[in-house]
Amino acid sequence: MSTSVDFLLWVRGPGFDIALVVFLIGIVIRLLEVLILGRKPDFAEPRGAELGAGLRTLVTRTLPEQGSFRRSPFTVVGGYIWHIGFFISLFLFIPHIELINATIGLSWPGIASNLVDAVAAVTIVTLVAMLFSRMSHPVKRYLSGPEDYLTWLVTILPMITGYLAYHRMIDPYPLALGLHILSVEILMVVFPFTKLMHAFTFFIARWYNGAMAGRRGVQS
């Protein structure tokens, strides 16, 4: 007999284990692949220190440069909304905190679930708008390949399944929850093989950018 609970048990059991293995091994490999390549020694006399400038860029690059903001407000604002919405939904929804607490023992206060619900709705709408932007903006459309659309899909799926599960729009509930967890597992599995890796490598990228510019005395 294959019931929705069996499905939930699978995604929560072996499914999660598989996803976790792929996710963690993949990320560690990707990071080491990058970092072990290293940099050649720089013999040019530095004008400024790398460390501080690198760390500053790591933080300051979070805010858009003014001119870029004016020239691509939609990308910037949309990007902010959905990233922040995604992280609020991921990390401030009480059941998620509960899950994290139960698995790795870390806990923090969450926010009201109806607030998360509203945030999730905005996030989903924004993600859809971002897709339209990607398909219509000449630059984004030109740059985008299957990977860009795949990563969009695996990002929005957990949001949608989570939203449906929360509102019990899929019946029975264990199936809704199972689909939600499965969509997260798909995200985890796809993650290390795609540009979703930017969630980790952007730290490295910003640091190198800031450090290399800082060495020349420029805060990038």
């Binding site: 048990l9 929560r12 999660f16 284990d17 976790l20 963690l24 509960e98 899950l99 698995t103 023992g105």
Partner: peptide
């Protein structure tokens, strides 16, 4: 909670 994975996540990780 219902969504908690069965396995020992920390050890596996």
């Amino acid at each position: 909670a219902l969504s908690i994975p069965d396995s020992d996540v920390i050890r596996n990780a």
